[in-house]
Design a protein around this nucleic acid. Sequence first.
DNA 1: GTATAACTACGAAGTGCTACGTAGTTTGCC
DNA 2: GGCAAACTACGTAGCACTTCGTAGTTATAC
Lengths: 130, 130
Amino acid sequence: MPPRKSSSQPTEAELEILHILWAKGSATVRDVFDAMNERKATGYTTALKLMQIMFEKGLVIRDESERTHKYAAAVTRNDTQASIVESVIDKAFGGSAHALVMSALGSGKTTDDELAKIQALIEAARRQQK
Amino acid sequence: MPPRKSSSQPTEAELEILHILWAKGSATVRDVFDAMNERKATGYTTALKLMQIMFEKGLVIRDESERTHKYAAAVTRNDTQASIVESVIDKAFGGSAHALVMSALGSGKTTDDELAKIQALIEAARRQQK
DNA sequence: GTATAACTACGAAGTGCTACGTAGTTTGCC
DNA sequence: GGCAAACTACGTAGCACTTCGTAGTTATAC
C-alpha cells in the first residue's frame, strides 16, 4: 500500500505549471514562463512567484546550485490527478465514482473510440482486481 | 440541442447547498441550515448569505411570497456535474475524458460491482451514440 | 401588549489565489 | 570597469470565497 500523500491540492495556475514540468521533466522559470505564454500572456514574475510558492508548498523541488534555479515536479501526474478526481467524487458526486464516470460519458465529448478504450480498461481493471 | 448554460460554476460551499436542495426539492434557509449542521457546525447567517449570493448568481430561485422564503435549485444536478467534469477534464486531464475515467477507475475505490455497472452504462452509451 | 424568537438584509473581516512592480544581485558584453 | 540584461526575493493589490455579527422587521407566546 503506497503512503497516502497529504500535500495540498494544486490550484489552477499551479496545475498549469505542473503540466509544463511533467512534460519537460525539469525547467527553469524562463522555460515555464515561455511555455505559459504560448497560451496566454502573463508576466515573468508571476510565473516566478507561483513557482516559489509551489516550492514552499512542496509541489516542486528545485536545484539552487546555479544562479538560475532548475525546477522539477515533486508530485507525480498520476497522484495529482487521482487526488483531484477523489476530491471531485467526494464534493460533487456524493462519493460515487461510477456517477462521475457516468457523467464523463454523458458529456457528449466522448467518442466511440474513447468508449472502446475505456471498455478495454475496465476489462483489465476487473481482471486485475479479482 | 439544449441551450448551453453559462451560469458560473458553484463554489464548494454552494455545491453543498445545491446537494441539499436537489435532495429536498425545495427548502427554507432553516432547512438547509439544519442539513448543513448534520455534517459540520456553521452559523445560520452563513447559510443565509450563501443562499442570497447563489440567488444573485442565478444558481437558485426563491419564492418570496411568504416572509420565510422558499428556495429551490435553478440548475440541475446533471448539468452541474457535467460542467464540473468538463472543467476537470480540461484543467487536469488535458482534455481527455478517458484519461479521467482511467484515473477514477485506478483510484482503488471502485468495487467490482461498480465496474460492472459502468460497463453496462458504456454499452448503453455506445448503442445510443451510433 | 410586551418580550422573545425567527427571519432577511447588509457590512465587513479573514483567507487564499493571482498578478505585477520594485529592489537588489549577478552575469555578460563592449 | 561600466552598462544592460537576466535572475531571485519580496511586498502588495485586487478579487473571490467563506464566515459571522449587527440591525431591523415580523411573527409568536405569555
